[in-house]
């Protein structure tokens, strides 16, 4: 498995995509830091970018890579290697190389601007963690879809739709529900509903650091407990890890029964 992992990783790190992704984050972060000159403001602006882009790129490249390496996979399957190792290796190679591009692209400018000695170091770490988690979750989901869907176009479509749903549509439905059922006690529902969307989850994780003053304005015992202590962060991190495990378990399960 390690050999497949390193192979995929090197393969991807040499591709244009990784460089483009790395350069994109590098330039955006540098520009934001240069123009806002304030670390916390740059972190807020970057949060919006990370929350949209990391899942999108994860989904796109995940789907693309698994469809494009189809023939290579078939070749490997002819060898005495466990299926699990092949797919897990490929997945980790992809998610790892993407995360590396992302972390370096965003990390280098922040280090230049001295984040490690500023008060924002934990906010930055949270953002970095969220970005990496989202990359892993969404490339995993894309792998799973590619495994299930033979047709490339359909697979891509499904993956993009899934991203669109989680990034925007889900929040829309969520918002409507909150407004329509305003008369009911909603705090538990609101918290639970955000656990079922990894993008919302990462957003809340970052907000627990950056916008705590606003979050604590909401009256509600459960909510206060969630936002006012470290419990909220703990729950968010755990749920994100669970989210990362889910698609991996999914595609490993379906790869065993798939007829190549």
């Amino acid at each position: 498995m390690t050999r497949i992992l390193t192979y995929s990783c090197y393969d991807l790190l040499r591709s244009r995509w990784s460089y483009a992704y790395f350069l994109f984050y590098l330039i955006t972060t540098l520009a934001l830091l240069y123009f806002s000159s304030d670390l916390s403001k740059a972190i807020i602006s970057l949060m919006n970018i990370v929350l949209i882009l990391s899942p999108l790129i994860g989904t796109m490249l995940g789907a693309m890579y698994s469809y494009n390496s189809r023939e290579f996979v078939e070749l490997l399957l002819a060898q005495p290697i466990r299926r699990r190792d092949i797919f897990l290796g490929q997945y980790l190679g992809l998610a790892g190389s993407l995360s590396l591009s992302f972390a370096l692209g965003m990390g280098i400018p922040f280090l230049i601007y001295g984040v490690q000695v500023s008060a924002e170091v934990w906010n930055f770490a949270t953002l970095l963690f969220s970005g990496v988690m989202l990359t892993f979750i969404f490339s995993g989901l894309a792998f799973w879809i590619a495994m299930k869907q033979e047709d490339k176009t359909r697979g891509f479509g499904t993956a993009i739709l899934l991203w669109l749903f989680l990034a925007i549509v889900y929040d829309g439905i969520f918002l409507l529900a909150l407004i329509l059922f305003e008369a009911w006690p909603l705090e538990k529902f609101a918290l639970a509903a955000s656990l079922f969307n990894p993008i919302d989850l990462s957003r809340i994780l970052i907000m627990l650091k950056l916008d705590i003053s606003a979050l604590l304005g909401y009256t509600g015992a459960v909510f206060q407990q969630f936002a006012g202590s470290t419990r909220g962060m703990f729950i968010c991190v755990l749920s994100l890890l669970a989210w990362a495990a889910l698609p991996v378990a999914g595609f490993l399960y379906s790869c065993k029964r798939k007829d190549f």
């Binding site: 807020i44 949060m47 919006n48 929350l51 949209i52 990034a167 925007i168 929040d171 829309g172 969520f174 918002l175 909150l178 407004i179 305003e182 909603l186 705090e187 609101a190 918290l191 955000s194 993008i199 919302d200 957003r203 809340i204 907000m207 916008d211 606003a214 979050l215 304005g217 909401y218 009256t219 509600g220």
Partner: peptide, 20 residues
């Protein structure tokens, strides 16, 4: 304005939909 009307929507702070 929305948060003023229904406070629970604070959970959607800074999401893409809200920006739109």
């Amino acid at each position: 304005f929305i948060v003023g009307e229904s406070p629970a929507t604070i959970i959607l702070l800074r999401c893409l939909l809200m920006d739109l």
